[in-house]
Design a protein around this nucleic acid. Structure first.
Lengths: 211, 211
DNA sequence: TGTAAAGTGTTGCAAATGCAACACTTGTTT
DNA sequence: AAACAAGTGTTGCATTTGCAACACTTTACA
């Protein structure tokens, strides 16, 4: 995943943050990050740490929309954060830099020579976010639990791309079930079927693909 | 939906297209637009007409990923067009302007005074695309056909926002089933249940919401 | 205008899935 | 180290859902 300040020197980054009126905040674990953030359009960059975007529906059911790590970006541009029911919880001690969206095209910024790089980075970040969404949609539109799992494993294999046909799950099984929007128990059952039928081998979070 | 050239005069738009080396193509109905397009990163703007992005899996099942109309944008930045199995079919006579992604930050462009507007438009287009994806994900993660339908209707009501509680479906029922990734027959059945239980009234593509 | 294609409504049936309840393991916190 | 929280594996059962097959209506088009 690319970084909003990729290819910009530490020094220029600091200047840029100043021009953008960026503000950094530190949070302890399990804090609702957005509780006291104003809801104008903003971009938030995770300096270090780890957060979860969670959707809670009117019945109290929770769905993990996204998990984000150091260097990743979220905000009103990339998530439906403005919607009711969306909360953003730190999973460990985390520092986040907030940038107001309006500032991205403020006058002063066009005078800097690293602005072009910044804009390119921003576009890249946005398009990467789009890709992650497209992939999830492709998975969610699969008709069966089996197809979702097989397609997900293939996707992880492609992404890590060592061609070894052995993947390591980046999520817990509970999180995976949530990501694919299936019942965890039904998922475990189907994983067992896939094992029994020889499609996969499972060793903890390592999975060997035979298809 | 916003336009890539919003707030840019006709005249400046033509100049900009030249700088961006944009090329426009016309297509008859039912043409595979991407069959002879090179697959470098590009942005495609629908000048007029109507297209469908369709995913065909290895078993031949087709899913409509997206339907796009005049003024809307697609491309390698916003869709997984590079993936195998993605085709892009015109649904009527359509004209599309292609812009190579590399050109978006070419040197000449920064000298123009409408560049800032263009970049802002581009970012806006990308974030709008992100929102449509987020919404679809929110719908697809609903557990039941009923929840998907109710949430979808509510979303359409919010979007058209006349507060009248009467919506008009922008899709055929067949397309809606595909969009929500549910069996069309099962959907019809559930719609009937919703009618019988008084949640909705259905008159063709008009639906009155009672919830 | 007539014919084909696409969209719609219905239903029985089999299969997949969610739910609930439980035991057990692993990780975290004090 | 004890206590608690979170993650995992399993199973029976009721329900939902997809599938298949069909008739009928609407739309597209040659």
């Amino acid at each position: 995943m690319s970084n909003l300040f990729e290819n910009i020197s530490e020094n220029n980054m600091l200047k840029l943050k100043k021009i953008l009126r960026a503000s950094s905040q530190r949070y302890k674990k399990n804090i609702n990050v957005l509780s006291n953030v104003n809801r104008d359009d903003f971009i938030a960059l995770i300096d270090y740490g780890n957060i979860e975007l969670i959707y809670t529906d009117y019945e109290g059911n929770k769905t993990v929309i996204e998990e984000l790590e150091t260097g990743e970006v979220f905000g009103t541009l990339t998530s439906s954060i403005k919607n009711e029911g969306i909360t953003c919880i730190t999973k460990e001690d985390t520092q986040i830099t907030f940038i107001e969206y309006n500032q991205i095209t403020n006058d002063e910024i066009f005078k800097t020579d690293y602005y072009i790089i910044f804009i390119k980075n921003l576009i890249k970040v946005l398009t990467e976010q789009l890709n992650t969404r497209n992939i999830r949609i492709e998975l969610l539109t699969k008709r069966t639990t089996r197809d979702k799992l097989l397609a997900y494993f293939k996707y992880i294999d492609r992404k890590t791309g060592n061609g070894s046909k052995t993947i390591r799950l980046p999520l817990t099984y509970t999180e995976l079930a949530s990501y694919l929007s299936i019942d965890r128990c039904a998922m475990t059952r189907e994983l067992k079927n896939l094992k029994d039928e020889g499609f996969i081998e499972v060793i903890g979070k390592r999975i060997i693909l035979h298809y």
